[in-house]
Write a protein that binds this DNA or RNA. Structure first.
Lengths: 178, 178
DNA sequence: CATCATTGAATGATCATTCAATCAATGACA
DNA sequence: TGTCATTGATTGAATGATCATTCAATGATG
């Protein structure tokens, strides 16, 4: 605590006064990250001019935006994910946002699916895979920071989408290896 | 420590004598999990009778085997992933296995890709996405244990593979919702 | 008896939390 | 305007709880 408050340029007392406890400070931190992320993809999604595939890609992009997807912030996210003793607490804090994002992606996938040809893989599966890919790629970026490339990460997901909905998503150009 | 040793039915002294320190015990724990996982997919992969797609699916299945993919073990994996201060240490311990698995998947994907038609998405991308999906789906299983279903998890990945290599992987039957 | 394995109470380090002391701001009064 | 009282904000040293580690004592074995 004293280390953290010193870095923040605040006194230990004032931080404890405002946040009540270290645990509350942690929860506020998670909420801050979650809301920041939420605003990022909601802004993109709310852009009325975009088509369904463009909106879905905008949500994907939000996950790899330079302001959202930094080594430090990823480390914080996974510190929370790893905290077995408070999984339920942390989940309750961000469940609403996660559900909202899942439902939006689900609706977009349904729209795209009805418009295009793909009917062998249901939108629920695609939305689930997308959610898993966000976290999985984040973990890869966190684990292998030496080849930390947001653009590569994004290409992975748009490659997946172009395989599922080939009429709506373009396969990215994979010029180089890796 | 004393809590852990009591649960293990061992004295605190003997555990410290064998493992030298709590940190070493943690590292041995990670190695145990990694080796257990390694043996699981290597066994499947080494089965000479299998084709390349079957081998790849066997590796996928290993990730969701009832012995490997339990709520408790997933919690331990992600506790390690979340430990920012020792990321490098833990990574060094399991990097060899991770690289081996990636290279094997890469070779299998290359084989499948050359045999089949898909040439717009390179095998490196597919192998990378697979690795991300393993972790991402593990995290989903850990976060939403109330719909913990290894079979559903596996179907996500084989659905992906059937989209990438439609001639070699069958799309699973998605009868019910979610 | 000697050697080696095993024990767990005692130690010391870490660290979140508390709270008496200090400081700043506001306003009342001469 | 200057002085002082009052209230509320801010501080960080002291407290106490937690917990990894140590090691003298005990037990087992040969």
């Amino acid at each position: 605590m004293s280390t953290v408050t010193e870095i923040a340029g605040l006194s230990l007392g004032i931080v404890n006064f405002h946040f009540k406890s270290k645990q509350k400070l942690l929860e506020e931190t998670l909420l801050f990250l979650a809301n920041e992320h939420h605003e990022q993809w909601l802004e993109a999604f709310d852009n009325a001019g975009l088509s369904a595939p463009e909106k879905l890609l905008a949500i994907v992009d939000a996950h790899f935006h330079p302001h959202i997807c930094t080594p430090k912030k990823l480390a914080v996210w996974f510190a929370f994910f790893g905290e077995a003793g408070r999984r339920q607490v942390y989940r309750n804090l961000i469940n609403g946002i996660d559900q909202e994002r899942y439902n939006i992606a689900l609706r977009l996938c349904s729209e795209i699916s009805e418009d295009g040809g793909c009917d062998d893989i249901p939108p629920t599966q695609v939305a689930n895979i997308l959610e898993a890919l966000y976290d999985g790629i984040w973990l890869e970026l966190l684990t292998y920071p030496e080849n930390f490339q947001r653009s590569v990460a994004r290409d992975h997901i748009s490659a997946f989408l172009s395989k599922v909905y080939p009429d709506h998503f373009q396969m990215p150009a994979f010029n180089n290896s890796d």
